[in-house]
Amino acid sequence: MTLPMVVRDPRLPSRVRIHEVGARDGLQNEKGVVPTGVKAEFVHRLAASGLTTIEATSFVHPKWVPQLADAEDLFPLLADLGDTVDLPVLVPNERGLDRALALGARHVAVFASATESFAKANLNRTVDEALAMFEPVVTRAKAERARVRGYLSMCFGDPWEGAVPEAQVVRVCRALIDMGCDELSLGDTIGVATPGQVASLLTALNTAGVPTGRIGVHFHDTYGQALSNTLTALRHGVTTVDASAGGLGGCPYAKSATGNLATEDLVWMLHGLGIDTGVDLSRLTATSGWMAEHLGRPSPSRTVRALSHQD
C-alpha cells in the first residue's frame, strides 16, 4: 500500500483527534435506510481502524430522520466498544436526551445554527429559541456527568443569507460555551469557507474568550476547500477535526455538495505532515470500500479511490 511521504511541520500539532461522523451524519443523508446490523458492523470496523471517537447515531424523532430510527436497537450493539471508543450521539431536545441516557450514552451533542434562516428551516425556531431549548438539555446532561458537544451550522455561509457575519457566529458560540458545552464544532455546512475566513473566525473566537482547545472544525468539500481549511485551523492550534469515512454525507441545502471531508483524505494529509492520528489507513480504506459496496456506489473519497485501484 502506498503511503504519503512524511515531512513534519513544527508549526502544527503533533497529534489530531478525528471525530468520525460517517455513521451518523453520513448515513442520515442516505436516501435508503441502512440495516441496523450493517451500521453496527460499520462502527466496529471504524473502531478497528483506530478511530476512538465515532458518532454513533441520533435520538431525533424517527419522523424527521427515518434513516436513524433504529437508535434504540443500534446503541446496545456497540456496548462492547464503550471502554475504548467514545460514542457521541445527537440529541435534539430533552426527550432525545432521555432516550440516550436510558441506554447509557455518556457523550451527547446538540445542533444549533448561526443563522436565523437555517434555524427556521432545520429546527423551526429562531436562533435564540433554539438556544433556549438546548439549555435544559445541556444542564441535565452535565448533571448526569455526560460530555456535551455543541454543533454550530452555517458558520461561514448560508444559502439564504449569504456570508455570515463573524460577530453572529461568535455570539452563538459564546452562548453554547456559557451554557456548559465542553466542545464546539464549527460547521461549514454548505462548503463555502476559504482559509482566510477560517483564520479570521478562529482569531475572533479566541478574542471572545473561546479557547482553541474547545473548538473542533467540520468542513464540507463542495468547492474542494475542506483540506486547506483544515490545515489553516491546525495552524491556529485546533486539534479536533470532524470527518466522515469515505466522504459519506452531504447537505440538502447545497445541491452541488460532495459531502463531508473524507476521513481517508484527512488521514493521508495528516500522516504526510507527521501528525499522529492513531488510524490505520489501510483498514480505514477497506472499511469505506466495504460500506460503499453496501450503498451500491463508489466512494467519493479520492484516497479511497486511489488506494483501491492499487489492489
Rank of each mutant, 00 (worst) to 15 (best):
S185E: 09
S185F: 03
S185T: 13
S185Y: 00
L186Q: 12
L186D: 11
L186Y: 05
L186M: 13
G187K: 04
G187Q: 01
D188K: 06
D188R: 06
D188M: 00
D188F: 10
T189N: 03
I190A: 03
I190Q: 00
I190H: 00
G191A: 07
G191D: 00
G191R: 11
V192Q: 15
V192L: 14
A193I: 04
A193M: 01
A193E: 01
A193C: 10
T194G: 11
P195H: 04
G196L: 14
G196E: 02
G196P: 13
G196Y: 12
Q197M: 15
Q197V: 06
Q197W: 06
V198S: 13
V198W: 14
S200A: 15
L201K: 02
L201F: 14
L201M: 14
L202K: 15
L202D: 04
T203C: 03
A204W: 05
A204C: 11
A204V: 12
L205Q: 11
L205N: 08
N206W: 08
N206F: 09
T207F: 13
T207E: 05
T207C: 09
A208G: 07
A208T: 02
A208S: 05
A208W: 10
A208L: 01
A208Y: 11
A208E: 04
G209C: 10
G209L: 06
G209Q: 01
G209W: 03
V210C: 04
V210Q: 13
V210M: 02
V210L: 09
V210S: 00
P211K: 11
P211M: 00
P211N: 07
P211V: 02
P211F: 03
T212Y: 04
T212I: 12
T212A: 04
T212R: 03
G213V: 02
G213H: 12
R214G: 09
R214N: 15
R214Y: 11
R214S: 14
R214F: 09
R214T: 15
R214M: 12
I215G: 01
I215R: 07
G216I: 05
V217Q: 14
V217D: 10
V217C: 06
V217G: 06
V217A: 08
V217K: 02
H218A: 05
H218N: 10
H218T: 00
H218V: 01
